[in-house]
Each structure stands twice: as structure tokens, then as C-alpha cells.
Design a protein around this nucleic acid. Sequence first.
DNA 1: GTTAGCATGTAAGGAGTTACATGATTTT
DNA 2: AAAATCATGTAACTCCTTACATGCTAAC
Lengths: 190, 190
Amino acid sequence: MRSDVLESTILGILQSEPTHGYDLRQQLASILGPFRALSYGSLYPCLKRMERAGLISRRDDSLPVTPARRSKIVYELTPAGTEHFAGWIGTQTPSDWEDEGFAAKMAFFSRTEAKLRLRILEGRRTRLEQRLSDLGDSIDITSKRVDTYTDLLQRHGLDGARREVSWIEELISTERTSHPSIPPALRSTT
Amino acid sequence: MRSDVLESTILGILQSEPTHGYDLRQQLASILGPFRALSYGSLYPCLKRMERAGLISRRDDSLPVTPARRSKIVYELTPAGTEHFAGWIGTQTPSDWEDEGFAAKMAFFSRTEAKLRLRILEGRRTRLEQRLSDLGDSIDITSKRVDTYTDLLQRHGLDGARREVSWIEELISTERTSHPSIPPALRSTT
DNA sequence: GTTAGCATGTAAGGAGTTACATGATTTT
DNA sequence: AAAATCATGTAACTCCTTACATGCTAAC
């Protein structure tokens, strides 16, 4: 995962409420999928970097909300962190086409403007279509080699890519129909 | 990709015919999918390591098969390399459960014994089922957080995981039916 | 009272990318 | 003759994992 994507995702989680590292990892895993979950050996140094960069700060929680004071370090957003997240969520970046960048952006879509949401989805679709055609080329190359299993593997990959594209297309059409403010003329420009 | 998986895959490709680095990369991409394709900055050092380890050797092709001698370096298997590949293809290792390890093994399945093939497929299925249940747990955790988009993302991930499992199950049942030597009693032990 | 899970961290090392550097061959 | 593609390689850098080290708290 690109470090800016990770940082922005952390900032996004912290925007809901101050959180400590261990818990942050669970949420990260549940948003991005348990696979891309990173290890603590990756997360804690990242939090330290972000603190040094002034994006987050350790919260001095003397609140007796949780009975006993533990050795938890609760992080919260600084104004700079809030601003950084607003910048990320309000713009389109190349990493938005990629798997993880896209997942991270989409997880916070309810805080994204409808127009930008659509643009990001369309960018993602373009990326997936390109991937689909690459996959097709690659299968053509191998087609001479008539190994049954290699073939099955490749077909499965192709299916997955196609499924990905149609999922995105459903999302796009849902976005368009639930925002009828967009003139119908634009809808066919796809 | 774990380096032993990469090395074994390279050995597997070289078993068909001696190949040079550039071409090896295309074949690697077409077998494993164009995504997991690695860069030359990764491949060439790996070939050098393998040469030093005695698994492959540079071929002195004075053969005038291709008209002009170019600056190509053609690698071929050494006896040690052949043996190494035979060991890998003939055994089950933990990396066979994982995405890349499994793809690499399956790409050479036509050179794998039917029994072992089945065991590897079943191991993969177990791994995928575990992944599926992890994903279910993770969605339960997030279910309180009723964000539409996070939800869509997670459902999509779950669908993908389920699709993966049923694909593997189809493969397994095909393996079993096309090898009726296996007593029917074993088939229900699934 | 001991096991399991919560919680934070560091050091070493693995794996791969990008950018750079170079040059041959084929196509337009 | 220029552009594209084939072909090999290195160095710096990024990102991440594993293994280790430590200690608290809750449940059995």
C-alpha cells in the first residue's frame, strides 16, 4: 500500500473518533479487507511518522470514560490532519485507479461529493477495462500452449476481471439514477 | 511473491525450452497473470542468483537457428535445476495455499500426479473457506457502522471470495469424476 | 494462577519498484 | 533516419513482514 493512501485512510478513521493503534488496525482490516491488513510492525512506525509530521497527536485522555487508565496511546486528528484528509477526499489522484487506493477512497465515499464520486468510479472503470484487455492479450499469447490447467487459471482470471467491470458499471449507473440532477444527455456520453 | 515460488516457476518455464530474461518475463506474466508480473529490476538479479546457485546456466548457443547472434543471454536448466523443480512440483508446501503459490503450482499441474493435484486443490479450498469466514467476521464488526459504500465494498469482497470457493469446488469435482479410480466412499468424506 | 487477548514497540531482513544507463534490432 | 521494441543491467529507495521484547488485563 502506498504510504499516502495508508495515511489518508488512518486520518479518515480518526475523523470519526480518536482511536489507538491496536484498534486502528482492526478497523483498517475491516474497511480494506482482512487481507491488506498490515502488521503492527508497519502500523506503529507509520503512526509515529504521522505524529512527527503533525497530522495526528497523542491524546491526553484523563477522561474516566473507560474505568482504568491503561497504557493505550489514543491518537486524534490535528487541524493539519483534518485538512490533509479533506484534500485527499476532495481530489482525484492516480492511485484512485488502483485496487487499494480505490478501496480506500470508496470506503469514505459518503463524505465525497457526488460529482467526484462519479469521476472516481469512471476512472476505476477505465483502469479495469484496460486490465481486461491486457488479460485478453496475455491469453492470446499463451493460447498456442494448450495446457488445460494454465488455460483454466487464465479463464478464471478473465472472469474475475469481467465481474469487476460489471460491478463498477452497476455502481456507476446507480450513482447516475439516484442523482437525476444530471441531465440525461450526459448519461449517454459514456 | 516468495522467492522460492518465483524460482520454481522460472525453472518450470525453462523446462519447456531454454529462454532469455526478456522473454521469460512475458511468459511469467502470461502464466501468473499480467499483474503479478515483476519488473526487470527484479527478474535479472533473480536469474543471477539462480545461476550462482547452480540451478540454471547461460547457454552458449552457437546454433545458427536464429540468423544473427544477438546480445541475448539464454538460460537453460542444469541437472540441479531439474531436480529442484521435480522436488517442488512433487510436494505440497504451505505456500500452495496462497494466491501466488497456488497459481504457480496449478500452472504446471499437467506435470503433477493426480493424487497430489487433488490434495493441493483441497488445501487451497480450506484456505479460501477460512478467508471467507474471516471476511464474514469482519463484516459483522463493521455492520454497526451503516455506511452504504463501505458496505457495498465489503459485500463485493465477500462475493469474490465465495466465487473463488465455488470455482475450486468445481475443479475438485472435475478431478474426482475424471479419475474414477478413486472409490466413491472417499468422495463423500469432503 | 495461567492462558488468551489487548497493547506497544524495535531490528533485521525480504521482496520488489522506479529511475537510470546502455545498446541492438526492427519497423515505419 | 527516426521511433518503437527488444534486451540487459544497476542503485537507491519504499514498503512491508517476521521475530523478538515487553507488559497489562480479563476470563477460566
